[in-house]
Design a protein around this nucleic acid. Structure first.
Length: 597
RNA sequence: CGGGGAGUGGCUCAGCCUGGUAGAGCACCUGGUUCGGGACCAGGGGGUCGGAGGUUCAAAUCCUCUCUCCCCGACCA
């Protein structure tokens, strides 16, 4: 029996000044966590208890499809060199030296370690498929830790890896994870969406993220309320309405126009009496290409052209040109590549290179510009624009690609769907994707197939952020007094608040009730502190426990109060019936959350 | 890394501009009164004012350097 009076639950009346998002404020106020450094937190009793509940669910579900390992967080340099990520991970990796001066790092993820085990141990197709997972602390030297447990430098991740003989096997492993993830997040009571995503630096093909909508999130998700299409903005597309308006239909030839001071899209549109959609925007970047083994990285000029009313999506652009990093051009570089100043850059007269990120300038044109005619563009000289510019005729490009970000209100890209996209902020709680052969190839994992021929296993990689489940749950269920968690992940299911512990009869009734609840298999916290009732109620409301039973003055009549935190509603229940009622409520909750999204 | 902000008792902050006794509320300890929505009274403990250097008779306060934390932009669970 857990008695509040004996526990360390340091609740705070006021939130620390530096806590911005709700989950951060409440996690600290409720005594779940304390900060040790930037992006480094201690998990106290209640916090650890909630996380353990989450881990329990994750483990239970993962055991249906995979096997749990526990891998070292301390990794020797060699393993990471074999995959090329010792350098590839850059500054996000914590590195250290041992007493002999040998390089080590703290694991950010465990593709390398898992693959090295596979390479050393797997010999035959008969041993495949395999799904191995672990629940482990990961370390990432984030450039900017923030928002409490949302973005930290040390966190707990469930990561799993699949090894299959062929693509069909990988599809199956991927689908298994998809199904299990949905179950896990549902059981944790989260309202989540699965979205198409960019696979990023990990490499790979199909990639799906599990997101929870919240303003505290850092990702933007485009979704269609009609057909259910949902994608990360880094990946999402939309159908555009054709631009009709003032665009001339004739075949004008490019003409130089004096446009003094019109360095911004809005100025240009105003000057030419056109909509921004008919002005060609140019964003000039330097893109970094990873050097081959032992070779240094190189930087190359990239000019991105798109509609004036669109924004460049740098993730898409980077993917289109095959670069590893992106930054905007400096003035000298603009002069070098465009011979013109910012604000007046344009595509006419540029000499695009044949292949991206080679010598010369890589010109990337957004697909929305293809087929357009008589547009306005910068002339690459101060205070001059060209009009009657027609892509394809007046300028060419290295490649055309979708490099823009979808905007709210654009048309859903699904065939036949008439929905309009909405864009919302979300936090990523899980990610599954098909790695392909990247690691098995690089690290030399091989097995023999039926014909005795060597094949390389194909891999998938699947992550869940444990703390983020907690954070997302709090973000999604809080009010000014605190938060409430689903019974499945709450540190306690029910708190018994004895309003006046000095009253021996009440104290005894509360204790007995708590024992009965415990005997019924519920996680009970008995608030037996010598505090005023108000203090106990406030604390109970704060700390995320979904149900509270007040043992107070009505106890003399054999009644207690059952309070549901989520709704703040309370009912008087006979002392003898309350255990069954709580069990029933919890069972109903579990039913609701198991249906899933 | 770029830009903005903050470091004063456990928490929230005042004091700094205009140098001179380090303060308030909450929390904590003791006693008393209270006892269903963060009680009240009385007494009490606790602070190298982030650190280093400098100016000055005198520095929380002025100057220089530095460390840490938070927020906004590029990364990811």
């Amino acid at each position: 029996m857990q008695r509040w009076s004996k526990l360390f639950i340091p609740t705070l009346r006021e939130a620390p000044a530096d806590a911005e998002v709700a989950s951060h404020r409440f996690l600290v106020r409720s005594g779940y966590i304390r900060q040790l450094g930037a992006g480094i937190y201690s998990y106290l009793f209640l916090g650890q208890r909630a996380l353990n509940k989450i881990i329990g669910i994750v483990r239970e579900e993962m055991d249906q499809i995979g096997q749990e390992f526990f891998l070292p967080a301390l990794n020797p340099r060699e393993v990471w060199e074999q995959s090329g990520r010792w350098t590839g991970m850059g500054d996000n990796m914590f590195r250290l030296k041992d007493r002999k001066g040998a390089d080590l790092c703290l694991g950010m993820t465990h593709e390398e370690i898992m693959t090295s085990i596979a390479r050393n141990e797997l010999r035959s197709y008969k041993q495949l498929p395999q799904i191995w997972y672990q629940i482990q602390t990961k370390f990432r030297d984030e450039p900017r830790p923030k928002s409490g447990l949302l973005r930290v430098r040390q966190f707990t991740m469930k990561d799993s890896y699949s090894f299959d003989i062929d693509k069909a096997g990988l599809d199956k492993s991927f689908d298994l994870h998809d199904a299990v993830y949905r179950k896990i997040f549902s059981r944790c009571g989260l309202k989540f969406v699965a979205v198409e995503a960019d696979s990023g630096s990990m490499g790979g093909s199909q990639s799906q993220e599990f997101m929870v909508y919240t303003d505290a999130g850092e990702d933007l998700i485009a979704s269609c309320p009609v057909c259910g299409y949902a994608a990360n903005l880094e990946k999402g597309t939309s159908l555009l309405e054709p631009v009709v308006e003032m665009e001339p239909t004739g075949d004008g030839t490019p003409e130089l126009v004096h446009t003094p001071g019109c360095g911004a899209i809005a100025d240009v549109a105003e000057f030419f009496k056109i909509s921004p959609a008919s002005d060609i925007k140019c964003v000039a970047y330097m893109a970094m290409k990873r050097g081959a083994a032992g070779k240094p990285d190189t930087w190359h000029g990239v000019a991105a052209f798109l509609r004036g009313d669109h924004q460049v999506n740098e993730t898409k652009l980077l993917g289109a040109v095959g670069g590893a990093d992106l930054r905007t051009m400096q003035a000298e570089e603009l002069a070098q590549y465009f011979n013109g100043p910012a604000g007046f850059l344009g595509p006419v007269g540029l000499k695009p290179n044949a292949k991206p990120l080679e010598d010369g300038l890589t010109v990337v044109v957004d697909t929305s510009l293809e087929g357009r005619k008589n547009l306005v563009a910068g002339a690459n000289q101060l205070d001059y624009h060209l009009h009657n510019v027609t892509p394809g005729r007046d300028f060419t490009w290295t490649l055309a690609a979708d490099i823009r970000s979808v905007n709210e209100g654009e048309n859903c890209p699904q065939p036949g769907c008439a929905g309009k996209l909405v864009v919302g902020k979300a936090v990523e709680i899980g990610h599954i994707f098909k790695l392909g052969y990247k690691y098995s190839e690089a690290m030399g994992a091989r097995v023999l197939d039926v014909n005795g021929k060597e094949i390389t296993p194909i891999m998938g990689s699947y992550g869940i952020g444990i703390e983020r489940i907690l954070t997302a749950a709090i973000e999604q269920s809080n009010d000014k007094n605190g938060f409430w968690l689903p019974a499945s992940i709450a540190p306690f299911t029910v708190v018994v608040s004895v309003t006046n512990i000095a009253d021996a009869a009440l104290a005894e009734a509360g204790k007995k009730l708590a024992e009965e609840l415990e005997a019924a298999g519920l996680d009970v916290l008995l608030d037996d502190r010598d505090e005023r009732a108000g203090v106990k109620f406030k604390d109970a409301d704060l700390v995320g426990i979904p149900y509270r039973i007040n043992v107070g003055k009505k106890a003399a009549d054999g009644l207690v109060e059952l309070v549901t935190r989520a709704t703040s509603s309370s009912v008087d229940v006979a002392l003898g019936a309350v255990v069954a009622l709580v069990k029933e409520r919890v069972a109903e909750d579990a039913l609701l959350t198991s249906v899933g999204a």
